[in-house]
Amino acid sequence: MHVLLVEDDPLVASGIVAGLRLHGLTIDHVGTASLADAALSASHFDVCILDLGLPDEDGMKLLHRWRNQGRNLPVLILTARDALNHRVEGLLGGGDDYLVKPFDLDELHARLHVLTRRVAGRSKDCMDHGKLTFCSSTGEVWLEGTPITLARRELALLRALLQNPQAILSAEQLCDSVYGYGQNVESNAISVHIYHLRRKLGKHIVETVRGLGYRLGPASTVGEP
């Protein structure tokens, strides 16, 4: 899961970044509304954590603008403003969830998963794809009931593919989802991870679309060597 964190306080931001990375999420952090705009235009994010007290623009205004521009990524508002009217305004003003500081890291992690799950139209946490079962929040993977151990990057790659089952994802998009936006990564890093995925889950788990990128393989062929 690729998360955009918009938070101006460096201490809080570094905590969230470190915590969510330990939970296996890919996270990018920006400190201002204008940088958040730039990040959203440059890369694909699955969910955004938005602080309202930003230095250059009020978070609610930024959210309004995003919604008016037709950006519909799920947004979790994370703020110190705990009054009822703020929470109601936040949720009616385009927020998908509202969490008051100080919060629990595990709760934040769980809520992010719920948000992405809802966007994908699922009501349970685990996804089935043929013989493959993938539990998003715990990062566990089973093939025909046998647990499979995947590395963190491999999990991120699998998650990105499962969340966009029909779409062709370019190598850059996958790179953003796995490493975060704008990271300097070796050009063949993604193909290395795909090689490992194919080795563990069968070669049909990822299809290569020549010249465009990659796509999730059909459910019927999962697990076949």
């Binding site: 809080v12 905590g15 007290g53 705990d82 100080p102 919060f103 890291l105």
Partner: peptide, 28 residues
């Protein structure tokens, strides 16, 4: 309201930082 909002922000932000980093430490 403006005062309580600012006070909440100033007091909760460092508290959130502390709490988050302690949880990161536990997780780590």
């Amino acid at each position: 309201r403006r005062f309580t909002d600012s006070a909440a922000h100033e007091l909760r932000t460092p508290l959130t930082g502390v709490k988050t980093h302690i949880q990161v430490a536990k997780l780590a």
